[in-house]
């Protein structure tokens, strides 16, 4: 019995020693070695396989050579990105938990959902990585040959638009279109579907009249003549989309307010140290100049569009303000 107790005590002691030394060593390493000293977790606010997830995985493949540590992509889907956001702001501010942000999670979601348990500016921006062009499409047999035709038709009576969910970027963008062109309120009936693909499907099936979408979700249908583009948003000012040289941009058509693009970037919890911000700002900039990365994301329909930590922060604020304004005016509320 005595021997038994001794053994168990010894085991306890050894375990304690092991735990203590691991914990002690671990914290020692973190305190001394320059950031980053261990792999970095990148939260993805959506499930595996979405466009933001793919963007995060493209980043995780390339950026380790500029950051110096591997990136672990972790999907935390739920509540249009709010779940991951919550996880991020509750994480330690040591720069080892970051988040792949997108227009949906940090631009439109806080603009339409006033009941989020955090504020739209409650994070640290590290760098914008990419934007994606958008396009307004109708059916090929539609009588509307130009944006002007469509707007005139909408003035006479409501026309139906498919949007990938209440308060999403296409929804708010179309409301901006209604507002800036002086159309009467409600002249576009917004019918919420579940995904970008579903909204194109609805247009092709004739269940709606018009669709505003990310270019990549409609490009093959445009090229096959199954839908027709009336206007597009180009990430490069003054230049048409290389994929659609015949389609005018909204700016050309005199509606620069519709210069709405999707975007993604990397965020950190509020209050991360300055060296983390510097490290990541540089790494993101170098990555956006990396040829391999550029090719990968261009295949997915995005365009490299670097913004530094501060500029990205101002950009996100501007996006929030723009969408907040239109959501308030039209009365779009999610999560009340």
């Amino acid at each position: 019995m005595g021997a038994f107790r001794w053994t168990s005590n010894r085991w306890l002691f050894c375990t304690w020693l092991a735990v203590a030394s691991v914990v002690g060593l671990g914290s020692g390493v973190e305190a001394q070695a320059p950031y980053p000293a261990k792999p970095i977790t990148l939260l993805v606010p959506f499930g595996a396989g979405g466009t933001t997830d793919l963007a995060a995985r493209a980043l995780a493949q390339v950026i380790p050579q500029y950051v110096g540590q591997p990136i672990i992509v972790v999907n935390k889907p739920g509540s249009s990105g709010a779940v991951a956001w919550q996880v991020m702001i509750e994480s330690p501010t040591d720069g080892y938990t970051l988040m792949m942000a997108a227009i949906g999670t940090h631009g439109t979601l806080p603009a339409v959902n006033p009941n989020l348990p955090f504020k739209h500016n409650q994070f640290t921006t590290l760098g914008r990585t990419q934007v994606n062009p958008t396009v307004l499409v109708v059916r090929p047999d539609s009588p509307w040959k130009s944006l002007k035709d469509l707007l005139e038709a909408a003035r006479k009576g409501p026309i139906k638009a498919s949007v990938p969910g209440l308060g999403t970027m296409p929804h708010l963008a179309l409301e901006i279109l209604v507002k800036t062109t002086g159309l009467p309120k409600g002249s576009l009936t917004m019918i919420p579907y579940k995904s970008d693909a579903e909204t194109v499907t609805a247009l092709m099936g004739g269940h709606v009249d018009v669709n505003y979408n990310n270019l990549i979700s409609a490009i093959s249908q445009i090229r096959a003549g199954q839908v027709r583009a009336l206007a597009a948003v180009s990430p490069v000012p003054g230049k048409r989309l290389s994929d659609l040289p015949d389609v005018p941009t909204f700016t050309e058509l005199g509606i620069p307010q519709m210069n709405v693009v999707g975007w993604r970037g990397v965020l950190a919890p509020p209050g991360v140290p300055a060296d983390v911000v510097d490290k990541w700002e540089t790494a993101v900039r170098k990555m956006t100049e990396d040829r391999g990365w550029r090719e990968t994301i261009q295949k997915l329909g995005d365009e490299p569009a670097f913004l530094g930590a501060r500029a990205f922060g101002e950009f996100v604020e501007g996006e929030y303000q723009r969408y907040r304004a239109v959501a308030t005016e039209v009365g779009i509320v999610v999560g009340r």
Binding site: G47, G49, T51, L54, S195, A197, V200, T201, M204, I216, I219, S220, Q221, R223, A224, Q226, T296, K299, L300, G301
Partner: peptide, 30 residues
């Protein structure tokens, strides 16, 4: 719908859609 129209109808075919994109192909009728 994925092969003939370029429209993924569930999560798994959306992934194959993305895979086609990543390999430089544009899924769809063409």
């Amino acid at each position: 719908p994925l092969f003939t129209l370029g429209l993924p109808s569930n999560a798994a075919t959306a992934m194959i859609f993305a895979a086609l994109l990543l390999h430089g192909l544009r899924p769809g009728p063409l």
